[in-house]
Design a binder for these strands. Sequence first.
DNA 1: GTTAGCACTCAACTTAGTTGAGTGCTAAAT
DNA 2: ATTTAGCACTCAACTAAGTTGAGTGCTAAC
Lengths: 352, 352
Amino acid sequence: MLLLDDRKRKILKAIVDDYINTAEPVGSRSVARRHEIGLSSATIRNEMADLEEMGLLEQPHTSAGRVPSDKGYRVYVDQLMTKRQLTADEIDCIEDSLRSRISEIEQLLKQASAVISEITKYTSLAITPQMNRSIIKAIKLILVEDDKVLIVIFTNAGIAKNSLVKIGAGVSLDSLVVIANYLSDRLTGITLEMVNIESLRFDAQRIMTRDRHIIDPIINGVEDCINQIASAEVFLDGTANIFNFPEFQDMMRAKKFLSILNAKDILASMMFNSPQGEEIKVRIGIENEVDELKDFSLITATYSIDCEIIGSIGVIGPRRMHYPKVIASLNHIRKVINRELSNLLGDDVEGQ
Amino acid sequence: MLLLDDRKRKILKAIVDDYINTAEPVGSRSVARRHEIGLSSATIRNEMADLEEMGLLEQPHTSAGRVPSDKGYRVYVDQLMTKRQLTADEIDCIEDSLRSRISEIEQLLKQASAVISEITKYTSLAITPQMNRSIIKAIKLILVEDDKVLIVIFTNAGIAKNSLVKIGAGVSLDSLVVIANYLSDRLTGITLEMVNIESLRFDAQRIMTRDRHIIDPIINGVEDCINQIASAEVFLDGTANIFNFPEFQDMMRAKKFLSILNAKDILASMMFNSPQGEEIKVRIGIENEVDELKDFSLITATYSIDCEIIGSIGVIGPRRMHYPKVIASLNHIRKVINRELSNLLGDDVEGQ
DNA sequence: GTTAGCACTCAACTTAGTTGAGTGCTAAAT
DNA sequence: ATTTAGCACTCAACTAAGTTGAGTGCTAAC
């Protein structure tokens, strides 16, 4: 951890704060003027030269002020910034849009994404829970219209998904009962990621003596249900917000940004690699694994059920992001999501 | 219908064609040069002055060439443009991404949207079917975990949606059978839009003598299922494509554009007001009802099941859109969607 | 160690001048 | 009666030169 003396800390903080607010390179004189440091611009100039040498500041060109480097932002985030609290209004806003009356997890995260971008004015992300580890509680086959079967799988996380498949007509009810029991035996109590579709299909061939042609469609339906439950969806909001920032007046950059947002799989993978234990993760510029994001900062927060991290929410914006506010917002919203999820899935499921 | 003599038609067509390709105002000399009209630039100049007087062309400023007006584009689309056929490659591309192996209607339309923007290079839209008119075929209640009921509704359009609700523990199976039969009686055979949730709830109170506390959650679950089936979803693709056009280098315009794309409800309403009978509708600039779209052209095409229009796909781009290509693409894709939908829902539902 | 002063740098802005594609009009040619 | 060549005019877009001002680094005095 990089240690700075008090004066350098004050000056670096002042520069980052100013730059976050103005997007203009910060000069020594304006630091002396706008902040009560009690030093002349000349002294500050010397300190700034030191900070630049240490790699914390950069100069766009000789006669401009300084701009924080990625490393500078990192020190700011880790050591210097003054933590912010949300205002009562902001908290109300979050509660209003997320509290109760939301019946589906997808809805909850969509709303969460909307409220994040509303409060932070950046582009927000929310990914639906990773349900690979959830346990199959029940699987039902329902005959509808004598040649179609509705397959329903239901997990301990309170999710049920269905798939409708056509089987040939004239299948005996007995055969359906046989395969239904088989599936129930094989699948109940195990997690989604443990399901091996091909061995399931193979073994079904062995136990079924009649009506074997129904195996393939039904197993496919089971696979479909499992995929539906396991697949993660990414919600975005406030994508147009990026245009509010002067550094993205450049069309090329804006286009690149939108292209990334359209690559949902890349977003999803970014969101997932938060190590356990870390509730909020800040990636500044070059720290992003994804190359196209090295002009951006990404802040993510995890949410969980029963202390297991299952998904995350986040914000993408310029490196010059208002870190204190975004971190405070995400931290609050992740707690609300945790609370709502446990309401939704736990004992209090009510009404819907 | 505006009638033009042959020479004016040729000149207007040449100007619109050139402007669509270059985005530069077209001058009399370049019309004379690039198209075989056999007239000098001076004559063409006179004709252009006439066309301007008729409101078909506009001049950005005195010493620039001419640009088509909305009315000019309209004449071009209705009378002048040479219809295009898709190339074999394009048709293959469409077939590859839409044919078979798609089990869900949502997937089909998502793919359709993707392929539209891939082929046209504009921003594409696809709205999921309006299912208000579909008929409820069956409704099932499944008891899971002795205090939760899974409600499944299944329609003639092959859609099944479920909702999981919690009822108090210790409900007798008899009560569940009573309400299941009641719901089945009341709902089977009617369309979604005919369902009156409140009268359903009210009458349930009358027929149920015991376990009345389960009525509210269950009716809410029914409502939830119906809403899930009836709600239309809008898929977008190629949103970043707008930046490829020089007329959208302007940030304000680009931002406005993205804002509209985020207002899914506005998009949905635009997509829906295609009168029956019209397969392809072209709205040019000012012809758009939505104010924010008056700098754009919107082309929509309907798709249907059993000859009833249930949804649409479309393209948004600059007024200077490549109309022949977009119209040909949408027309082809709508036919493929019709075909796939009838495969999906009709007799050929197979496996998945 | 701190600061005032000064020469220097350089992006951003202003101004004036140039270019060139395009027009409208008129008079000659067909 | 059309069509066309010729010419004067317009105006956005580009270029070049000059100005401004915020900022720097260095040095010498405090």
